[in-house]
Amino acid sequence: MYFDLDGTLCSYDTSFEALFRRTVSLYGEPTDVAHETYVDRLLTALDRCESDPYRRAFEPVTKTITLDVTPTTLAAEYCERELEATVVTADAKRVLDTVAATNPTGIITNGDGEHQRAKLDRHELADRVDEVLVSNDCGVRKPDRQLFELAKECLDADEFIYVGDSYDEDIVGAREAGFRTVYVDGGSVAVEDAAAADGIVSSIGELLDDDPLPAALEGPFAS
């Protein structure tokens, strides 16, 4: 059984835009154009699974506005702020522990390998699972079926389940690779709008409750 990281196991107590502005404001004016430039370049770097995506994202920012700092320093300081903003609930940890007690368990996440693994280490998640796959390390990004197929090769199981909060990247991508899926919708999506998912919960903690547990997934969670 695999889980997504950002938005599923891990949330944030500060917006990414606020983190960007706090980082840049120490050295200059964090304008809207600078933020848009940063976001566009970061998304491109992540989509292409490029190395050092945050440094690459800050490079055009230093050309858009005058900053007395290097892109490397900005990237390091931003990533540290984002790491400090991460929140992993006790429920999320209990879900991992419950599943891992009887099933091979892993995490599939999009992002920079070093940065994503730092989140896992900070919240002691890496030791709770058997396998971690990060898109930039693997050279392929969700929802590409290839990443899910690679994940299937990493755990010994007859059937695979994926739990994630992005319908297009997590649910659709995993289903195409033959996974059963649980959609963590945050309570904001109508059931008919997520028909491809085998189960829908509003939060990761609901997987520990008897009633919300999708009937199709009772086996993996049964003790």
Rank of each mutant, 00 (worst) to 15 (best):
T89E: 10
Y162F: 10
P60I: 09
R180G: 05
S25C: 10
L213W: 12
P214N: 10
D32I: 13
L5G: 00
E36W: 14
D130P: 06
S203G: 14
D185V: 12
T66L: 15
Y12A: 11
F221M: 06
F160I: 05
L125T: 02
R48G: 08
V39M: 07
S11W: 13
S223P: 13
A101E: 12
R21E: 07
E17F: 11
E82A: 05
D40E: 09
R81K: 13
E114S: 14
D112I: 02
G173P: 02
E82C: 10
E206P: 09
K63N: 15
C79A: 15
L96P: 00
S11N: 13
D40H: 15
D52C: 08
D52N: 14
R81D: 05
L67E: 02
D185A: 08
R55Q: 13
A85F: 02
D137N: 02
E176K: 11
S25R: 11
A157I: 06
Y2H: 00
S223V: 12
E159T: 11
T70H: 08
R81N: 05
D209I: 10
L19Q: 09
S188C: 15
C79E: 10
A194M: 05
D47H: 14
R21D: 07
R56D: 04
E218L: 13
E159I: 11
A126N: 11
L120A: 07
S166W: 06
D156G: 09
R41D: 01
G7P: 00
A216F: 02
C49L: 02
T64E: 12
E80D: 12
Y78P: 01
